[in-house]
């Protein structure tokens, strides 16, 4: 029996803590609880209002069991068509613009000035919320789906260019070099050395973005940028829960269908 064994036998064993320093560990825990208490304390709850709301909540849940597609069917139909039109057009335009910007934002194929400009565009697009962009664009271009179309296109650029650029930066260097070695020009090089490597993921991401754009298009109507959001907002304002439930169900079904289709397409291209 070794000496060390004799030393440890009979001693308690504890799992070594994640943070070794005991004071830091305690400080973090205390800090966390203090924050939690302070944060919860800032929530002013009007319990009477909540209690009254429970009935309405129940009504709303019941409305999901009997959604009313009919009484506002024209509004719902027009709003949905507008949402889908905006989504499709903005996705196509956004993807088309994202590809050159994504190429430019990849450090391994773009020269530095181009890289900085493209990264700047990506950063601005990602930092601005869709709804804020929509507010500004509605102020500039007036109410209607054009503002929504531009908003979604702009948001698509930030999302897709960034991921495309990251994908290009992490691609297999050797394959691209082999094409370069054959004496190709820049466009041929992109077409043969880069495109085949990133295409499957680009298609997958585009499908995913189409899905996001549709979900986002549902809120643009709240600020007047077209789509189903306006109809939904009206339904909430008038407490027409059955109509609101019908719209929400439609959104969920369309998102599910889009996810299903994009699953099939992604499986096919990969």
């Amino acid at each position: 029996m070794s000496v060390e064994l004799n030393n440890v036998l009979g001693t308690r064993w504890r799992k070594p803590p994640l943070i070794q320093r005991a004071w830091l560990r305690r400080l973090l825990w205390i800090g966390f609880f203090v924050y939690l208490v302070a944060a919860v304390a800032t929530i002013e709850v009007n319990w009477l209002r909540v209690y009254e709301g429970l009935d309405r909540g129940l009504l709303f849940i019941l409305a999901f069991a009997s959604p009313d597609f009919l009484s506002r069917s024209t509004d719902i139909w027009n709003g949905m068509v507008e949402s889908i039109v905006m989504t499709v057009a903005a996705s196509v335009a956004g993807i088309a613009i994202s590809i050159p910007i994504g190429l430019g934002a990849a450090r391994n194929i773009a020269p530095l000035p181009v890289y900085l400009i493209c990264r700047g565009i990506v950063a601005i697009s990602r930092a601005l919320q869709e709804i804020i962009v929509a507010i500004l664009l509605v102020a500039i271009f007036g109410f209607g789906p054009l503002a929504g179309f531009l908003t979604l296109s702009f948001a698509t650029i930030g999302f897709l260019s960034k991921l495309l650029a990251e994908d290009i930066e992490s691609m297999d260097r050797v394959q691209a070099e082999a094409i370069k070695a054959s004496g190709s020009n820049w466009l041929q090089w992109i077409n043969y050395g880069v495109q085949p490597q990133v295409m499957p993921r680009l298609i997958g991401l585009s499908m995913y973005r189409l899905d996001i754009n549709f979900r986002e298009s549902a809120i643009l109507g709240l600020v007047g940028a077209g789509g189903i959001g306006a109809t939904l907002n009206t339904a909430f304002d008038r407490y027409e829960y059955d109509t609101a439930a019908a719209i929400l169900i439609l959104i969920i079904v369309i998102v599910m269908a889009l996810e299903y289709i994009s699953g099939i397409i992604r499986a096919r291209v990969q």
Binding site: S2, E4, L5, V8, L9, G10, R12, W13
Partner: peptide
């Protein structure tokens, strides 16, 4: 405690006592 001691004994037997943590 009995299990902990057994664990230490076994780790010592296979020469990994110093690696316990």
């Amino acid at each position: 405690q009995q299990d902990i001691d057994t664990a230490f004994r076994l780790l010592d037997r296979v020469g990994l006592l110093s690696m316990a943590d």
